[in-house]
Design a protein around this nucleic acid. Structure first.
Lengths: 228, 228
DNA sequence: TTCATAGTTCGATCGTAACCGAAGCATCGC
DNA sequence: GCGATGCTTCGGTTACGATCGAACTATGAA
């Protein structure tokens, strides 16, 4: 069979544990240097360098030189979606590197998924937005309602502005820890940014987890209540 | 990094060309025997057997014994979605096994994607359903309208019946040849089934392509007109 | 029973790719 | 200029896994 696109190539790229770890780390959205990526991959820099070259040649990564550093990021959002997709799939099959348990509680509570909020808090936020009628779930997709637009304006998010980008406003992204959807898309990004800007939460140094301050926690839970 | 699901495992499973070919062939929805799969993979049966065992252990494949044959299928729809996802992604990056051109015209015109119609005709059908107001595209998702439900009843598709299944009614699936969405989900399956039942089209023996009869072609194009 | 077909298991070969040490560039700070 | 840091390239080793021939098991047909 010589029909269709070549899945094996990208499968093989993702199929190496070191490379998979690097890609997963980059799903954190932050650009990382070759040395840092070597760390997360558990390999030496030389080896990491060849891996990174392969990933770049395969179109999964982009790099930006800055001084004597080389910052690597995922090539675009499609790559991030693919990785998260595969994570969701793998989690569903029980392909976990460690037994499930409450292993990385912080990561399960709130983490960054490329550029938006994931984990328990991410799922909660979307649930709450749907319950309040701000977002409508239609089939697999999500749509912002009129009410949602004005609700968001009240907390300082200008939806009209976001619409101008080519990127979809609302997108649903399957959460691998919660096995339910959370909010991605430019709106998901804007919401997370606003939390960070307000000082409600901050990103941690080397991990994908997001730490809420006590005050931020209160505000977040107030803003996105759950049904009882 | 020891966090999160193990993406590398399934990446590696898909990353071997022989296995990728087998999986792609099984995306055709039809159960295939080990010998047939050896053929599409371009390997001997012994080798195929070990590959199939690995894929099954990895949860990607299911097998059913029937007499002295062993029929392999994708484990479930999630696997099919993952494969099609990756195909769409790979096509977008130009990871084609052959140069794009009009290589497999029949396959690009109409083919089966697990259990629904894909290719030019698949995309056209969804476009037409949206244009006529039978289906609404909301964000990334698709929703059947009241009008759609009665339109479909008129051509003999009982939507109420489909709803009873746990599977989503409408799902959008990215078409790797057209780079646009076509209709998946139980409705997509029902529509394709009805075309086949009516004798408008038939599946081909060893390929994923779907051949429309001249009469079926006429009927299909009449039923799903395109905007001019 | 015997033969034929479908598939798996075993054993051995072979290629490829991951890996690291060492050397080579490039950029920064001094 | 110098040395230090970040990264890549080169060379050689090693290990894993894809592959196939041959032997083995299972189902069916005669």
């Amino acid at each position: 069979m010589k029909e269709g696109p070549d899945i094996a190539q990208i499968g093989a790229l993702i199929g190496d544990p070191a490379r998979a770890n690097m890609l997963a780390a980059l799903t954190g959205g932050r650009a990382l240097t070759a040395t840092e990526l070597a760390g997360v991959g558990g390999i030496t820099v030389q080896t990491a360098s060849t891996h990174l070259a392969k990933l770049e040649a395969g179109g999964l990564l982009a790099q930006r030189k800055q001084g004597r550093h080389r910052y690597f990021t995922l090539a675009d959002e499609a790559v991030a979606r693919l990785i998260e997709n595969m994570m969701g799939f793998a989690a569903g099959r029980g392909h976990l590197r460690h037994r499930p348990g409450p292993k990385e509680p912080a990561l399960r509570k709130a983490r960054i998924c490329y550029d938006h909020l994931a984990g328990d808090y991410g799922v909660r936020m979307l649930d709450s937005l749907i319950a309040s009628g701000a977002i409508e779930a239609v089939g697999e997709g999500l749509a912002l309602t009129e009410k949602g637009e004005s609700d968001l304006a009240r907390i300082g998010i200008d939806v009209g502005n976001l619409r101008s980008s080519r990127r979809p406003l609302c997108r649903s992204c399957l959460d691998w820890s919660e096995r339910r959807a959370h909010l991605a898309g430019s709106l998901g990004k804007a919401l997370l940014s606003s939390f960070l800007d307000r000082g409600w939460a901050r990103r941690t140094a080397e991990s994908r987890s997001i730490l809420f301050t006590p005050e931020g926690d209160r505000q977040f839970l107030r803003l996105f209540p759950v049904e009882v």
